[in-house]
């Protein structure tokens, strides 16, 4: 088990922030490509793609953001308290 409070080097921190930034930006791109998901088919339980695509991305966003929050929190250690 890695120790969460371990202080990371500057380079590790930079990398953690970069990965977190990418993870946080992914949902934005998933939603900005409107023409891709503004369709009826394929349907899920009778719900058109337009609706279920955006709903499923809420769950994915939470996972991506959660990982990003973990990475940032670990990189910062206790410096922001």
């Amino acid at each position: 088990m890695p120790n969460v409070s371990t202080v990371q080097s500057g380079q590790d921190k930079k990398r953690a922030y970069m990965i977190a930034g990418i993870l946080m930006a992914i949902p934005f791109f998933a939603y900005i490509i409107l023409p891709v998901y503004d369709r009826v088919d394929p349907q899920l339980f009778g719900v058109p793609l337009f609706y279920w695509y955006q709903t499923v991305w809420l769950a994915i966003s939470a996972v991506l953001f959660g990982v990003a929050a973990f990475l940032i929190g670990r990189a910062k250690g206790g410096e922001e308290e």
Partner: peptide
């Protein structure tokens, strides 16, 4: 700040109810 970041990150889950 760390806990705030994590709880904020998980708030889209609440949006599923709204959807």
């Amino acid at each position: 700040a760390k806990n705030l970041r994590m709880s904020t990150a998980l708030l889209p889950v609440y949006g599923i109810g709204l959807a």
